[in-house]
Design a protein around this nucleic acid. Structure first.
Lengths: 347, 347
DNA sequence: TTGGCAATCTGTAACGTTTCAGTATACTGA
DNA sequence: TCAGTATACTGAAACGTTACAGATTGCCAA
């Protein structure tokens, strides 16, 4: 059964969605001419061009995506690949808004491609590339040696990563300067007289784990503070795990008097753990935490925060992918965002 | 310029993505037969069918989406329409995961269609329908008389709403029972001896505003408590506004001794406002709040919470749209989820 | 033997777009 | 006047799929 109820043919009857054929009929031109006129091809007369574009605007012509895609292979789709277990809530929401802000006045659509714990992170990317489902891909949870980035480079698919890689390969990325963040955090704690510091790290294996750990370590020796190892958790752990292990840590004699936390959700658990151990934030221990929305100062005024803007990340990542698709040099599409100062609660 | 590097023709050379033509050549059958064999059409011999499907699986055939879409109009796309300013962070993240969980083993893709404050909420929906960009649509922020639902019904586009409508029209929805929530919240406060209650409402104009307000009012008279009007804010307001106005409210002589809050983010602000006014949670005032992830008890142990599961919402909404697309009765695709009990902090 | 019919299979056209290889017209220079 | 050429346009083919309208075969009843 055909899906259309009425034939279109050459009549200009009202209801059907206009196609190039409709425009060709209305203007008395050929389909080819109309197609070229709409994309400002040079061999079309100036008047004809204007006329076609006027009519097209009037009747609200929009190119059929399936037609374009079938003929050219261009999907006009950007895919955001997300881990359904380990992404931060605020990350998902904000990065999507950042991306959509950029593609709002382009023909691009955003599709969300999920993968779960059990899957190889390469799976969704392979799917996208094999089926040609997207013109560009955005991935997060980037690793120093990232198979997904390597795969897409090999297959010539434009992409951008949230976080850098370290494979000697050039590609667009946006990253938050976690080395600077950890350093600033340590210095802020040192300025408060704290000298025995622990770090709640990003997930081991991701690139920004290294940057964070290095920034932390370098600043420690710079200010002459020492590290209290806290390797049993990362921000990928559950609230309960972090809370419990923080409480354990804080009950030890050699407990830290300062903690640096890489994510707001983890910080909630850390503070709960501190209080479980009967200690008081700001008196017995200070905590510096990253956050992506202004919640931590409502939570505890004593917290010191550094802001990371995920909407900006989405914005930059989308611009980077689109830039690559448009032919710009991948190496010119890399950006690093500097952390804010370490901010205390302000009235 | 053609996008392909090598001709395909009749040779079975390796690199190109297989199409029906490839399968036809390999099996020695016609393209039509292959097409029908793959979708289990009745007029294909049992052995042929098995043979075709085996070969298809072997070489990893996947139908070209553009081809199908062009020919049939079927997009295999579900669109989630989101407001970029007013959705809750956790809502965006969780509902997306709920939806993707359902469509994971279907051919469907999820596209996110955003709209901003300045736009008519009907705009994105109109775009989707006019361009035929999706087989099904999910919308949130549903109103009693919702132009978007009406529009899609008129145009025969399957959709599901997060929240009910009240137009005498039947369509799939998933909703949280906010009437029950508000009622339970009031009863819990009454059980704690609170009798002068205020409500932080959902956004005025959305359907669940009404349900919440009615549940609140009915329970108030049931338990013999009175309402302290707090109409100056809703959960759509900024953290700062809610905090400031809560502080104002709590400094008045006739301040409430119990507050019901419709969202976790607002609750953070409410508590901050309470403390700004020099009052203490649990002593001077109790607060019952909805939340969609386990954060509030980390925030303040004195809070009473009710959980709303947005991932479930995404799951149910996706199932509903797919069901409608598959031909089920819209009226049979409606679900309401009951609130949990009102939960105090538990060790 | 023949007509009828069921069971399988097939070619063609069409969806809307872009590209290729033209064609028609007017203008140029000698 | 005429070839040569730039300008402006056009039809046909192709992308991969499905629907329609056959085509071929074998079998059975008359």
């Amino acid at each position: 059964m055909d899906r259309r109820v009425t034939k279109k043919g050459d009549d200009a009857s009202g209801k059907e969605r206009p196609t190039l054929k409709t425009l060709a009929f209305m203007t008395g031109l050929g389909v080819t001419t109309v197609s070229r006129a709409l994309k400002d091809a040079p061999e079309i007369g100036a008047e004809t061009r204007r006329r076609v574009q006027l009519v097209a605007k009037q009747i609200g012509y929009r190119p059929n995506r399936a037609g374009v895609r079938l003929r050219t292979g261009k999907t006009n789709v950007i895919s955001l690949v997300l881990n359904t277990e380990h992404e931060l809530m605020s990350f998902v929401s904000d990065i999507i808004y950042g991306v959509t802000e950029v593609i709002a006045d382009t023909p691009y659509h955003l599709i969300v491609t999920p993968y779960s714990r059990s899957q190889d992170p390469l799976d969704p990317v392979r799917y996208l590339v094999e089926t040609g489902s997207a013109d560009g891909v955005i991935i997060s949870r980037t690793q120093p040696n990232d198979p997904r980035a390597r795969y897409m480079l090999e297959h010539g698919v434009p992409f951008a990563t949230h976080g850098r890689t370290d494979m000697g390969l050039v590609h667009p990325y946006h990253d938050f300067d976690n080395y600077a963040f950890a350093g600033e955090a340590v210095r802020a704690l040192a300025a408060k007289g704290r000298s025995r510091l622990a770090l709640v790290t990003p997930p081991v294996g991701l690139t920004y784990f290294r940057y964070t750990v290095n920034g932390f370590a370098d600043a420690l020796s710079e200010v002459g503070a020492s590290e209290v190892p806290f390797n049993t958790v990362s921000i990928d752990h559950t609230i309960e795990q972090i809370r419990m292990r923080t409480a354990q840590l804080m009950r030890r004699d050699d407990r830290p008097d300062g903690i640096v936390s890489s994510a707001a959700a983890a910080t909630l658990a850390v503070v709960a753990g501190i209080e479980d151990a009967g200690l008081k934030l700001g008196r017995d221990v200070d905590v510096v935490s990253k956050q992506s929305s202004e919640v931590l100062h409502l939570f505890r005024r004593e917290l010191l925060v550094v802001n990371e803007d995920f909407r900006l990340a989405g914005y930059e990542l989308a611009r980077a992918v689109l830039g690559w698709i448009a032919g710009k040099e991948p190496g010119s599409l890399q950006s690093l965002s500097k952390p804010s100062e370490v901010l205390p609660y302000r009235g």
